[in-house]
Amino acid sequence: MGRVKPGKPPRERLIRETREPVQPLPGWPESHVSAELTGDDEFECVVVTIHGVKHYVHASTARELQLMLEGSLKRYNDVCEEHGAPTV
Results as ranks from 00 to 15, higher is better:
S34A: 11
S34W: 10
A35P: 01
A35Q: 05
L37S: 12
G39K: 04
G39M: 02
G39C: 02
D41M: 07
D41V: 04
D41H: 11
F43A: 15
E44L: 03
E44F: 00
E44S: 08
C45P: 00
C45Q: 13
V46G: 05
V47K: 02
V47D: 01
V47S: 02
V48Q: 07
V48I: 15
V48C: 08
T49H: 02
I50Y: 01
H51D: 08
H51R: 13
H51K: 10
G52F: 00
G52W: 00
V53M: 03
K54T: 02
K54S: 10
H55L: 14
H55P: 04
Y56D: 06
Y56V: 03
Y56K: 04
Y56W: 08
Y56L: 10
Y56A: 03
Y56Q: 03
V57W: 05
H58F: 09
A59W: 14
A59N: 05
S60W: 10
S60M: 08
S60G: 07
S60F: 11
S60R: 13
T61I: 13
T61Y: 06
A62V: 04
A62L: 03
A62N: 04
R63V: 06
R63E: 11
E64Y: 11
E64S: 14
E64G: 05
L65I: 15
L65N: 04
L65F: 13
L65M: 12
Q66W: 14
L69N: 00
L69H: 01
L69S: 03
S72A: 14
S72H: 15
L73Y: 13
K74H: 12
K74W: 07
Y76S: 02
Y76G: 00
N77L: 01
N77Y: 01
D78R: 11
D78H: 09
D78P: 05
V79T: 12
V79Q: 06
V79I: 13
E81F: 01
E81M: 05
E81T: 09
E82D: 08
E82C: 02
E82A: 04
E82P: 00
H83R: 12
A85D: 03
